[in-house]
Design a protein around this nucleic acid. Structure first.
Length: 423
DNA sequence: TCTGGGGTCCTAGGACCC
DNA sequence: TCTGGGGTCCTAGGACCC
């Protein structure tokens, strides 16, 4: 059994060629982008903060450069904590609010607010190269993608191929990425992380088990703090422990995820790289500097977020059938409420109205964060559907409700639809 | 570590249908 | 009328990922 899974009676892997999957992951992507347009930041500690404004202490760390990590700054940390460990360079200047005369430049770092638009423009340059290098690309997030390159290279030269991808991105965009190559998506993902930053790790089909076995369980994708703790309670410390365990208790405790965990730990993962499908939901949320009890400011935020979400959906050409809100109460209690409509709509006023209604329950409670979401999305497939009435929207949409008026003018569906769902 | 923002998937109970 | 089994949809919450 030590030699991996070979069931008798089943033709072994030689017939079915092992796919070659690359996982490409940019190193400290946001910080790298900031360095791209501000080369003075190279070699310096850089912290990119979400919900952060220069001079303020709100927000959380989105990305910390390796230099900043030396000071104990970590991703997802409160900016206030990060500033304690690594004061900002601007505090050296006597006219800064947080001026500190005792500060040494070497003990400070550079803080920048997230600028997603810029990062996205850099990411699209990277993605262009990725698509050029692979038959199938799945973008997982702004700084991460899987590539199916089975027909572009071979295991014997996979490291050279991965090197080529890395070099092109560095040369043409100026961004450093780590790459993992493996016969499965899950192993490729772990491999890209294995030697970060600037990593390149190839795990060949025969090496899969030895590669995974010594890894701590929380390195497996899908294992967070909660699952890791529970696994340790079951005496399962490494992927090898999980791989050798009886899967039954895992399934009992974690359900479907337990099965998956077991499979992944053994290197079993038959998912193929596929392009990302349509999104399932859009949401916007925003935190207050401190908990708010009065209804006014909360409803104001709800309205702003509702408008932003509806606008996003319209720009993306999506109809939605569900509207939801979120209210986070101190210390960190997350409440969600949602309501589904009889049919898909594109109607900002209704999003706002429903969001307000759903939020009413929390209007007098102290709330630190609010959010609005639309879901059950339907993407009008390429335009021609509108003229066929309901033919393009299989499912529950009531044919009677999608009548002539709507089919006639897609550009301004507001008035026609509002009457239909006014309840 | 006193906690930002945008997502995905899974689970569990209840309503409702046949 | 007191009751089986299967399926789907809806809602709320939770874990996880970047």
């Amino acid at each position: 059994m030590a030699d991996g899974p070979r069931l008798p009676g089943i033709e072994d892997e030689e017939d079915e060629e092992d796919p070659i999957v690359l996982h490409v992951d940019a190193d400290c992507f946001y910080a790298a982008c900031e360095r791209l347009r501000e080369p003075e930041l190279r070699g310096e500690p850089v912290v990119v903060g979400m919900g952060y404004e220069p001079g303020e202490t709100n927000g959380a760390v989105a990305t910390a450069s390796y230099e900043a990590r030396e000071f104990g700054v970590e991703s997802a940390q409160a900016i206030s904590t990060a500033l304690e460990r690594l004061p900002r360079r601007a505090a050296l200047s006597p006219d800064a609010d947080d001026y500190d005369p005792d500060l040494e430049p070497a003990d400070t770092g550079h803080y920048r607010p997230v600028d997603l638009d810029y990062y996205e423009s850099v990411a699209s340059d990277v993605q262009e190269i990725l698509h050029d290098c692979a038959d199938v690309v799945r973008e997982v997030s702004i700084d991460e993608a899987y590539l199916e390159v089975t027909d572009r290279t071979a295991w014997e030269v996979a490291d050279g191929f991965a090197r080529h991808v890395k070099d092109r991105i560095r040369r043409e965009v100026g961004i450093v990425v780590s790459v993992g190559a493996a016969p499965t998506m899950s192993a490729a993902k772990i491999a890209s992380d294995f030697d970060k930053p600037d990593g390149l790790t190839v795990v060949r089909p025969g090496e899969l088990s030895e590669f995974l076995a010594p890894l701590e369980v929380d390195l497996l994708h899908g294992v967070g703090p909660v699952t890791a703790r529970e696994l340790r309670e079951m005496d399962l410390e490494t992927a090898g422990d999980v791989a050798a365990a009886d899967p039954e208790p895992l399934v009992e405790r974690f359900g479907e995820r337990g099965r998956e965990l077991y499979d992944r730990a053994r290197g079993d993962d038959d998912r193929r790289v596929e392009p990302k499908g349509d999104p399932k939901s859009f949401s916007r949320e925003s935190a207050f500097a401190e908990p708010v009890s009065e209804p006014g400011p909360k409803y104001e935020q709800i309205e702003t977020l509702a408008a932003a979400v509806a606008d996003r959906a319209r720009r993306e050409g999506a109809l939605y059938r569900t509207v939801g809100v979120k209210a986070v109460e101190p210390p960190f209690e997350v409440n969600t409420r949602e309501r589904s409509l009889p049919g898909p709509i594109d109607e900002p006023e209704l999003v706002e109205e429903i969001a307000r209604e759903l939020f009413a329950e929390f209007e007098r409670d102290p709330v630190r964060k609010v959010g609005v979401r639309v879901a059950n999305l339907e993407f009008a497939a390429a335009d021609q559907t509108s003229l066929d009435g309901w033919a393009g929207t299989p499912g529950d949409a009531d044919p009677a409700s999608r009548s002539d008026a709507e089919a006639g003018d897609r550009s301004n569906p507001d008035e026609e639809q509002s009457s239909l769902f006014d309840f």
